[in-house]
Design a protein around this nucleic acid. Sequence first.
RNA 1: CGGGGUAUAGCGCAGUCUGGUAGCGCACUCGCUUUGGGAGCGAGUGGUCGUAAGUUCGAAUCUUACUACCCCGACCA
Length: 425
Amino acid sequence: MFWSKIFIPTLKDSPQDAEVISHQLMLRAGMIRKVASGIYTWLPLGLMVLRNIENIVREEMNASGAQEVLMPMVQPKELWEETKRWDKMGSELLRIKDRHDREFCLGPTHEEVITDLIRNNVKSYKELPLNIYQIQTKFRDEIRPRYGVMRGREFLMKDAYSFNLDEESLQDTYLTMRNTYKKILERIGLEYKIVQADSGAIGGEVSEEFHVLAENGEDTIAISDASEFAINTELLLKEGEDINSLEGQPSPDGNGKIVIKKGIEVGHIFQLGKVYTEAMQVNVQSQEGRAVDLFMGCYGIGVSRLVAAAIEQHHDDQGIIWPESIAPFEVNIVAIGYTKEIKIADAANELCATLKSIGYKVIVDDRKDGYGTKIKDAELIGIPINIIIGNKYLENGEIELKHRNGKSTVSQIAELSTIFDRFKK
RNA sequence: CGGGGUAUAGCGCAGUCUGGUAGCGCACUCGCUUUGGGAGCGAGUGGUCGUAAGUUCGAAUCUUACUACCCCGACCA
């Protein structure tokens, strides 16, 4: 991959309307551009990161035994009337009419569609449990979209729905999803907390949120300084009480004291019970031949929000610092004088080929610009490893290996592939 | 929806108070010189000043209405 062949419109200044750092950096790094409030185009670099996260999510979901489907974004009013949500949802639900005046909405979530699918096609307890998921664009006409992709109206979400014969089976699936989410966030490389939550409008009994810890988080969570315990402060505050008054109080789980942190909610898992399956009459024949309503769970991850959350947690004054797991490229070969010095171009191309062959995602900065421009851009877009090939290479074969997190070493080009070889795949 | 703010070139801004026909930096184009921390010189391109109406001989500037966008609150992955 050559830098000059990829559309990466970086910006020196951040646009005035970007407030939080992830939004600023995503714009400056040429990852996204706004189309309307809360609605964005993903440019090549942004899409690469989005896809990387999506793939981690997909791999872990598949490994957990869940099955991928793709449901429609446009959903008929009739299904939403069955659960009474056509009226309940209010203007968050974007409603549209087709040419025959039939009413539809843009899907903000898919309980209705999946439940309809299951009731029409699953007839026996033998086919259960089922856990079905999709990675799809959602639309919620948020009262106030903000912070770029962090709270967009259109966003990419992984949503899974499980159907279980009894409560025990539901809990089993729920725990599997809980563990899967832990794996996903650990694989991406984010510091997070599992937080007891209010199940809110979706209904149901048990629910937990996954929060990526970051200063710009929209949620305030109370965590214990002595255990894994964490809870959304909304559940802890009594009328008129100030959040700061919680700090230092004994933790509700009896271990240690409360510490207040800011979090970005990137995942939410629910045990819904029978709320939807009763409303929409989803039942199967049990072993005894009776019709029984199913237990349902739903499990969401904000895929596009995770991109922003990762940046909130991993950046410095110069730009993004991608965890290797989701970086658009793992290695950037900064070839100074690429267009002029054949020896530099040859060395860069050859190194690129070698690294590719051992499994690295590599980009060569072949642009006509000088060192300053190239390294500034490299730091902005956050590639983990930068290899500088410049005049020192011409003089004595030396190149510099510069990690985005600060460390840098000098070595001979021949040694380099050996170094990388040891680490790779 | 309530409160606050912004709108002038791709991005950042000046000009608005005090009306006189639009400017700066960066980016972009061409040429030459440069190439280890956002290069230099020269020559260029690009704006119905958010939209509409009004006041005026004349409006980016004054008046009114509208729209978009951002921030604070309630909703949520």
